[in-house]
Design a protein around this nucleic acid. Structure first.
Lengths: 214, 214
DNA sequence: ACATGATTAAAGCACTTGCTTGAATAAATC
DNA sequence: GATTTATTCAAGCAAGTGCTTTAATCATGT
């Protein structure tokens, strides 16, 4: 569990998560946060040091667990000489979003949006102390994918992982946009369905030949 | 050609494009713009009415031509009963970014970032008068893709188009991030190569069976 | 040369920004 | 109960925000 008691600090974190998920990092002010959390303005600087550090805390709070879960799932797939499929590896890459949100108190919709913000608008780049973790994930998954699809080159895997990131971020952030843009014609699949579609799409992309001429 | 004379109005537009591409809509202030453009603050409100309308102008300035070019390319592919492949349709969807940037004075890198911003952080949603155009593109391409891949359902095509958007936005916006995160291991392919990889990835995703179980 | 409308410029307005201050309060330690 | 220590509060500061106002400048046609 991540949030238990309604301390001032946790009130600030929760309000920030809500506001950032809905409006993005750049549009949320200290007053927005402290009003929403029913807390004094000075409390943010007292507990977090600065607005920027508060935002870094927000970014680490769920992404770190997601990355841990990713590595754990991957280890279970590939440890002790086991061989994993591309699909299984992609699942290890994406499913942690679903499992971590279950352990939090946030609604799925809000959590996904917040994660999308972290991936797409990381306030002034990724927080410095998240970079090693992200690199580790990228490297470990790249290696696993290269083993699972030995016909691919490292560069190709990196690019396709990058594309996969895009699919994920878009789905996390803008699930609603598609709904409104198509007047609901896209249906209203639940998170697990969307998740399977995402994986299916990216799996096929990964298994394609280079350049994939028709 | 889009920009010819160094009028105050065009200076403002160019400075705004540069700053927004680099920093995102939310972080750019009127003073940032007018300092960079070497014009008076009041000029923005005189020529555009408000900051918001300036941003709308920025968003329309290249996306409208991109959407026109998309429809034109698609029409050439599917007009008069011709039958197009999924790959050709996806190319009609994406290549306009490459052709429109060639006709502008902006560098590729800046243009792609700006387009990424427009897609990912559209300042307070899409400008109202762009929505019909976007809907038209979505509908036309959905229809074409359904014809090219008759085994897919409308919902599936919409979702996969959505995923394709994500791949595109991520590549436009964060090409550099991948480079730095992998210490250059992703190589440094030119725009056309990246473009072919993007299309290959999305084509394979589109051609996958629903859910794409291994 | 003059008048007309379009454009630019300097100053400022009301408001918001992140952050700090110094006093008041609550909690913990002795 | 007294004394630290941790936390909360109201107030305010300097800088920045979008935008307006009023006067000056420019280009134009007569």
């Amino acid at each position: 569990m991540i949030a238990e008691k309604k301390t001032t600090k946790s009130l600030i974190l929760e309000a920030t998560e809500r506001l950032v998920a809905e409006n993005g990092f750049e549009s949320v002010s200290l007053r927005d946060i402290t009003n929403d959390a029913q807390v004094n303005v000075a409390a943010v600087n007292y507990h977090f040091g600065s607005k920027e550090k508060l935002f870094e805390a927000i970014q680490c709070r769920y992404i770190d667990p997601v990355n841990e879960e990713r590595l754990k799932m991957l280890e279970e797939l590939t440890g002790e000489g086991r061989v994993a499929t591309v699909r299984e590896i992609l699942e290890a890459f994406m499913r942690p979003f679903l499992t971590v949100v279950k352990g939090s108190e946030m609604s799925e919709k809000l959590f996904f949006k917040l994660m999308g913000r972290c991936v797409m608008d990381p306030q002034g780049g990724l927080p410095e102390d998240m970079v090693p973790g992200m690199k580790r994930v990228a490297e470990t998954f790249t290696k696993a994918l290269l083993t699972a699809a030995p016909n691919l080159t490292t560069e190709l895997v990196l690019w396709r992982l990058h594309f996969t990131f895009g699919v994920m971020a878009q789905t996390l952030l803008h699930g609603e946009l598609l709904y409104s843009l198509t007047d609901g014609a896209c249906g209203d699949p639940d998170a697990e369905d969307q998740f399977q579609e995402m994986i299916g799409f990216c799996e096929a992309g990964f298994l394609a030949e280079k350049g994939a001429q028709k």
